[in-house]
Amino acid sequence: MAIVLGDNRYGKAGVRLVRVDRGEAWHRITDLTVDVALSGELTAVHLSGDNAHVLPTDTQKNTVYAFAADGVGEVEEFGLRLARHFVATQPAIGRAVVTLAEYEWDRIEGADGPAPHSFSRSGRYTRTARVVHDAAAGTEVVSGLRGLTVLNTTDSEFVGYAVDRYTTLPETKDRILATDIDARWRHRGTDGDWAASFAAVRRALLAAFAGTYSRSLQQTLYAMGRQVLAERDELVEVRLSLPNRHHYLVDLAPFGRDNPNAVFLAGDRPYGLVEGTVRRDDAPAALVEL
């Protein structure tokens, strides 16, 4: 029986980058974490330690900063520039995957309105992107967001589920539905108005969450993905990961009080986790699974 090297990659992870664009009156801040992963003809370094085809990860880090000196722009654009560069300049590298997370900052409100160069970290959600550039298979762009917390106070139920000897959960016709949206969506091509597309997808996700009477979180997931694809022709696939942030009705009877669906314990863990993909039936195969 032979022992062989399988799939492998290497790169620089967790590159922290802050770029300040200094206008005459207003400053703009871009705050990113960038991960780079390269793969290709790397058998020799694994089997014998021959580093001839290895671009140091420190060089990859420096490349991120050097490219940022020319501007960052939208995260998808920056990822495309980096991924294409690594494949074009390193003959042994056939594929580059660049993953980016962008953190949102809000302008601080001063006495006379928004401050031109003062910011607070919003924490509302994190914008993400992943670019795959493969010399043989082509280029793929995946945009996304994570940590977008949403909640419906009603129009959600959970009944008719499978029951066995270990089931204790009571059915409910009116419950709080809350989740932290982690969404990724795959584009048809490698150009377009990335900012407008991102904003439109975010609106569609929120509209579907708010507008769906939910009989299960799975139903809500499908409704969200379907609405995104129905509205955005430039996308072919949406992947959603939705933790069910449970809210438990507190029993106030020991205190002689009623609780008409008003007072809840917000549970932390354990939590239900629903994940799924909604895609067009003619979507081309992905270079990397969403």
Rank of each mutant, 00 (worst) to 15 (best):
H117L: 00
I108N: 04
D155W: 00
E76L: 06
G147Q: 13
V97L: 06
V98Q: 06
V150E: 02
V142G: 02
Y125N: 14
L148S: 10
E77G: 11
W105C: 00
G144F: 02
Y161N: 07
F158W: 08
H85V: 02
R95N: 06
E140P: 02
E109T: 14
V159E: 09
E171T: 11
D155T: 03
G73R: 14
G73M: 12
F119N: 02
A92L: 05
R84V: 07
A135P: 04
G147L: 09
V142E: 12
F119V: 09
R127E: 10
V131Q: 01
T172F: 00
T168M: 04
D155S: 09
H85Q: 05
D174Q: 06
A137M: 11
T167N: 08
E171R: 07
E77P: 00
E157C: 02
G110T: 10
V132D: 04
G94N: 15
Y166Q: 07
G123L: 13
H133V: 03
A115T: 12
R84A: 06
G147H: 12
A136G: 08
R84T: 03
V163S: 05
V72R: 14
W105S: 09
A92E: 04
G147C: 11
P91N: 13
G71L: 08
E77C: 06
A111C: 04
L100K: 10
L145R: 05
L100Y: 04
A92P: 02
L148D: 15
E77Q: 15
R84M: 05
V141Q: 09
S122D: 13
V87H: 05
P91C: 10
E77T: 15
I93F: 15
F158T: 02
R81G: 06
I93K: 12
F78E: 00
S122W: 14
D174F: 00
Q90F: 03
T128Y: 08
F86L: 04
G138F: 07
L148T: 07
P170Y: 13
G79K: 07
E104V: 09
E157R: 12
A115V: 03
V163M: 05
A83S: 12
G138S: 11
G94M: 10
A135M: 07
T126K: 08
E77S: 15
